[in-house]
Computed example of a mutant assay.
Amino acid sequence: MINNKYENVEDFLIDNTFQEYCAGDNQQCIQYWTNYLHKHPEQEATMIQAKRLYHILVGNKRPLDAQVGKLKADIQALAPIPTITKFQFSFWIKTAAALVILTGGLLWAIQRSSVEGVASQQRDVSYVTANGEKKTIELADGSKVTLNAGSKLFMDKGFNVNERHVHLTGEAFFDVSSNKEKPFIVHTQDFDIRVLGTSFNVKAYPEETTSEAVLIHGLIEMKSKRGNENLVLLKPNQKVTIYKAEEKIEGKESVKKVKKSQLKEIAIQDLEPEEDNLTLPDVAWKENRLEIIDQDFSSLQHVLERWYDVEIQLQDEHLQDYRFTATFNKERIDQVLNALQKVQPFKYKIYGKKITIYK
């Protein structure tokens, strides 16, 4: 590694391992930078700019170092010829001009990339959590948002100037500051939520078969997407669940197209905490409490993957139908699996961050 601190595009470009990652020639470098991106999601935009700039400079042909090295070799090979002074002078002028053009092109490309980066930053601001991570942020309007694992929240740079729109993928708990002139609107893949000032939880992971919203205080208006637009008003301690229809795959085997289908069903449920001093199970994750309520193994698999930052494989289809109800606080993943084994019979093997579950 050339540089241990990466703050801008240039820091990535001067790293030889990053160049090999961009070229796709070295599997070890590809794995390293893939893991680096996973650990530093906040640098995704900068890495994309650096990778784009790399391909502009090399033309998707050869590494930049190889091109510069060949140019130096050509200069050294031609320099010893003493009898063609006039030709040498002309050659050096052309070589200098080429270097000026190359340097100018590099500076232009870096400046252009930087300008595009600034423009991109002006377009939106994003917050990302990796699996096994939670994060609480305060927005420009004073609203507080807690992101659950494997989630992303982004908004326009001008958030709270004229309006308050945010886009969510994953799960988040919102405590929204009141402002009647600027309604707070949360956009997800399956529905939009409009509020004035309240606290609520939204769960909208693309890979899951349902999307949910739970209202704690205040009043929210939810409008579903995909097909008929259903408008739902939620009261405190109410939960709305949207059941997604299965996505259809169309086309030949070589070219498959995923067609988004309409929503299958919408259900509203009144919730009550099990005890007065406990929060609702749907938002217990904010207190690092994992609540599992009559959940099948297929959906629980995704929850555990995000919670513990692991990859789980169910080797038997019958395992997917196993259902569990349990509460966990600070247990390790092996302790959780051991507890679940007492409810339903299964075996498991752990290889680092990969877990295989079988009968």
Results as ranks from 00 to 15, higher is better:
Phe297Arg: 07
His318Arg: 03
Arg289Val: 08
Leu337Ile: 06
Asp316Arg: 03
Ile48Cys: 00
Asn16Asp: 12
Ile2Met: 10
Lys225Thr: 02
Lys61Val: 08
Arg306Ser: 08
Trp92Met: 12
Ile220Pro: 13
Arg112Asp: 10
Thr85Asn: 15
Pro345His: 15
Gln67Glu: 08
His187Ala: 05
Val145Phe: 12
Val202Gln: 12
Asp15Glu: 12
Gln111Ser: 14
Ile185Glu: 03
Asp321Met: 05
Ile2Val: 14
Arg289Thr: 04
Cys22Gln: 07
Lys182Phe: 01
Ile48Glu: 01
His38Ala: 12
Pro41Glu: 04
Glu250Gln: 07
Asp296Val: 00
Leu102Tyr: 10
Thr46Pro: 05
Leu234Lys: 01
Ala98Leu: 11
Asp294Met: 09
Gln76Asp: 11
Leu196Asp: 03
Trp33Pro: 14
Ile2Lys: 14
Asn160Phe: 12
Ile268Leu: 02
Ile56Trp: 08
Ile48Asn: 02
Leu147Tyr: 02
Lys61Asn: 09
Thr210Arg: 15
Gly24Gln: 07
Leu263Cys: 08
Lys286Ser: 07
Gly150Asn: 14
Phe297Asp: 03
Tyr205Gln: 02
Phe174Tyr: 08
Ile75Gly: 01
Glu274Trp: 04
Glu133Pro: 04
Pro236Ala: 02
Ala50Ile: 07
Ile93Arg: 15
His55Cys: 01
Lys134Phe: 04
Pro82Ala: 07
Gln335Ile: 01
Asp141Tyr: 10
Ile56Phe: 07
Lys286Asn: 11
Glu291Gln: 13
Gly227Thr: 13
Asp15Gly: 08
Glu311Phe: 04
Gly105Glu: 05
Ile185Ala: 00
Asn16Lys: 11
Pro345Glu: 13
Pro281Thr: 11
Asn162Leu: 05
Asn160Asp: 02
